[in-house]
Amino acid sequence: MNIGEFQTDRSPSGQKAAMETPLLDVRDLSLRIAGNETPLIRDVSFSVRPGERVGIVGESGCGKTMTGLSILRLLPPIGIAASGQVLFEGEDLFALSPGGLRAVRGRDIAMIFQEPMSALDPVFTVGEQIAEAYRAHFAASATEARARAMDALARVGIPAPDKRYFDYPHQLSGGMRQRVMIAMALICSPKLLIADEPTTALDVTVQSQITDLLRDISERTGTALLFITHDLGVVAETCTRVITMYAGEVVEDAPVDDILLAPRHPYTSGLLRSLPGLSPRRGKLPFIPGRVPSLAAMPVGCRFRERCSHAVPACEVYQRMEPVGPMHSTRCGRAGELSLMGAVH
């Protein structure tokens, strides 16, 4: 079954009333630097259903990585105060004991990062590291764990897995290392894989191999994917739904095709229109004026309003996420009256 097609089915009652219970449900996640009034991440809420592939896009500093890390409580323990709930299958990960959290990490929720070299231990073979991830959660003999690790290497498309098992990380190329990370993440058959910019350090021809692999694995095994990236093209090719973040807030949440055709938040529209591939060759490129405000200079109300060409005085009050269509919501009070340009003119 093609999970992708299933996911884009429109539910007339909208997102809130989706029949399935979400696999991951982030509710009003806020992060504050100790002693700072303005939250770094403010009221981030979104959900991921079983088997769904959701992209989080945004530029540097928008909070997408912080959001991904806080789901598994991987943020530094001091200096940052988190509030809100991260429900995984109904259980609040923020309320778990360290032991309970360890049982979830790597088992139910796995995570891969941009730079595989910093996530792999240089003094162990890649095979041993994958097997170790398995034995951390299952009572398996060394032989069984090894067999499973080799099988995992084969499943992520590494040729001659029985030989590569004994390679050290430095012996592999960047693309192969990222495949090893994916094998390690998948060895325990997690229900959710969080991938933070997994292809950013890779060349474009290798990037397409990895995104195809992640999509295939998700379709075949039903593993849900939370794909964090700055690249809207990568999201379009990998995910079924996309969440746009700006300055620590979710500003839009919609199926990929809807957001590309008809974004409802001026920031999403601006981001799409900034892509050079979508403008006539040699013509003037659209861009978003100004820069992301620093925490100290964060505007009250809509955080985007100082860079927004549609801003009006009403934008100076706090903007809520409001539904604007089936499975589509946005944090812009003017969404109803604006007609914004998407990727296709």
Binding site: G233, L272, A343
Partner: peptide, 27 residues
């Protein structure tokens, strides 16, 4: 040809090319 087809395009699914040339291996 392969490089151009590997470029991820931010286009809705019905406008995206159905098949890409996926190169094996790396440089």
């Amino acid at each position: 040809q392969a490089l151009l087809s590997a470029e991820p395009l931010p286009l809705p699914s019905n406008l995206r090319p159905t098949r890409r040339i996926i190169l094996q291996g790396e440089i």
